[in-house]
Design a protein around this nucleic acid. Structure first.
Length: 489
RNA sequence: GGUCGGUUAACCGAGUGGCUAGGUAGUGGUCUGCAAAACCAUUUACGGCGGUUCGAAUCCGCCACCGACCUCCA
């Protein structure tokens, strides 16, 4: 198992060599969605990013336990302590049970993830299924003196925590400065400090989702679930915690505080954050009302979209940028990704009919080494893709006869594509299958042979007519040096 | 206002103190009955002003602009 992989640790703000705590095992926790609405382009970016990490770690031979939670309770809107629960709000709007809402959006979320060929995590725990664990965690924090109870609610004492530990180390914030720069929010008299956050909230009379607890009938605070579930499934200390950059503060900061307050030590070794997707230079945000849902992207049904984009086009678009950069959405960029992906997939198919030469005029093993280097360098998928396009050029040139590739190098290339294009980048050839249907294949052979006869007699009107009519039927015909190839549009 | 990050050619998007990233689009050529594809060649770059250096787009400083976080967000 090689350990050349380096990843950017948000905690140290630099690239660090990845050294697992207990090789060959790796514990990976990623903040999953709050299931109160359909999944959007931003979700795709986050989960494609960590899917890439998951796939590459497995490729390196690690045994990864990947935990991605589903938030189905406790996530409030607006001010963290006064807002309405997102799930409950949606339940009221759609006149459903909260858990019906949860199920509905879990179903579409998982469907979208499958469309994007994102592998299922090892465990997808739900917050509502871990109320006991969350309560136990609160008890530990209370016992250690870093939380207090007011009116049946329990809050984390940030100021006290900050005296011994460092609240703000992940996001680079200093508590005193935060306090100076923050306006006093109203309606927070239950809390001792403005940055204290809820661990347990007493349910108001109309609140639907509620559980008994030593403090009140209520529900857990949002930040708690990740600490509780990561500890349960990955242990007190584990390797990697991931999520969107926007979660760094306050969510991940609070997670660090909770775990540290409960166990006296931090739980995460490497923090990784993916950057945002922007639309016309601005972050996609609910408040800006510029969301594009994945279903809309796949169907083209959105005012900003000129056309539909397939799941693999979206995946490839995301992978063509580095995960720590913002990517700006545009139709042009998506269309460029679509074309590029087609080129990659066609070259992969051409690989199968490549005629070997006695020797090679290209260095395939060097290409392979470069692919690994790119991924080892903080998952540099754009560089990896650029190397794969060098492979594309070699394949096409070999088909044309301007480069030579030996039998063993063809095998290496095939392995290279299988490994990096399909296993690591997780791409799928969406257009594959045209030749799978034997009957169609036979019919097409007859048509192509008849057309070839016409061509041999230089009856161009007939041959062009056949090509034209096939096109209308959705079949693209391309003449080769000997014969022709076809594909379904 | 505080903190952090960015500004790369027509568009997207990497990277580096001196060596063509890549994709898409454009132009010219090869191939072809034509078309498509492919191949070869090729145009417009590193926000501005200084500084360090033999050499900077890459390091430093200042300025301009953009964005993120500081409230829910992937």
């Amino acid at each position: 198992m090689d350990n050349k992989l380096s990843i950017y640790n948000s905690l140290s703000r630099k690239k660090e060599q990845f050294i697992p705590l207990n090789p060959p095992f790796v514990g990976l926790y990623v903040c999953g969605p709050t299931v109160y609405s359909n999944a959007h382009l931003g979700h795709a970016r986050a989960y494609v990013t960590f899917d890439l990490l998951y796939r590459y770690l497995m490729h390196l031979g690690y045994k990864v336990r990947y935990v991605r939670n589903i938030t189905d309770v406790g996530h409030l809107e607006n001010d963290a302590d006064e807002g309405e629960d997102k799930i409950e709000k949606r339940a009221r709007l759609e006149q459903m049970e909260p858990m019906e809402v949860v199920q509905k959006y879990i179903n579409t979320f998982l469907k979208n993830m499958e469309q994007l060929n994102i592998l299922h995590p090892s465990i997808e725990p739900r917050a509502s299924g871990h109320i006991i664990e969350q309560q136990e965690l609160i008890k530990s924090i209370l016992k250690n003196g870093y939380a207090y109870e007011t009116n049946g609610s329990v809050y984390f004492d940030v100021e006290k925590y900050n005296k011994k530990y460092n609240y703000g180390k992940l996001s680079g914030r200093v508590l005193e400065e935060l306090q100076v720069n923050t306006r006093n929010l109203e309606g927070q008299d239950e809390k001792r400090g403005p940055f204290d956050f809820a661990l347990w909230k007493k349910a108001s009379p109309g609140h639907l989702m509620r559980w008994p607890s030593p403090w009140s009938e209520g529900y857990p605070g949002w930040h708690l679930e990740c600490s509780a579930m990561s500890t349960k499934y990955l242990g007190e200390v584990f390797d990697i915690h991931g999520g969107g950059m926007d979660l760094q503060f306050p969510h991940h900061e609070c997670e660090i505080a909770q775990s540290t307050a409960a166990q006296g030590k931090e739980s995460v070794k490497y923090w990784m954050h993916n950057n945002m997707i922007t639309i016309n230079g601005q972050k996609m945000a609910r408040s800006l009302n510029n969301f594009i849902m994945l279903d809309q992207l796949f169907s083209g049904d959105h005012p900003l979209l000129h056309q539909a984009y397939s799941p693999m086009t979206v995946r490839f678009f995301i992978l063509q940028a580095h995960y720590r950069s913002t990517i700006d959405f545009s139709n042009e960029a998506l269309q460029a990704a679509e074309k590029g992906l087609q080129k990659l997939m066609k070259a992969n198919e051409a690989l199968n009919r490549l005629k070997p030469s006695l020797s090679s005029s290209v260095d395939i093993s060097q290409l392979k080494a470069r692919c690994h280097e790119a991924m080892d360098d903080d998952l540099n998928s754009p560089i990896l893709i650029s190397h794969l396009f060098e492979g594309v050029r070699i394949i096409n040139a070999a088909v044309d006869g301007t480069e030579r590739v030996s039998t063993s190098d063809i095998e290496t290339l095939k392995r290279l594509f299988r490994t990096f294009v399909f296993e690591v980048l997780g791409l799928i050839n969406e257009e594959a299958g045209s030749a799978d249907d034997k009957l169609t294949g036979n019919l097409m052979k007859i048509i192509i042979d008849l057309r070839q006869d016409a061509k041999n007699r230089k009856e161009w009107t007939i041959s062009d007519n056949i090509r034209e009519k096939l096109k209308k039927a959705g079949i693209i015909l391309k003449d080769l040096k000997d014969g022709a190839e076809w594909e379904i549009e």
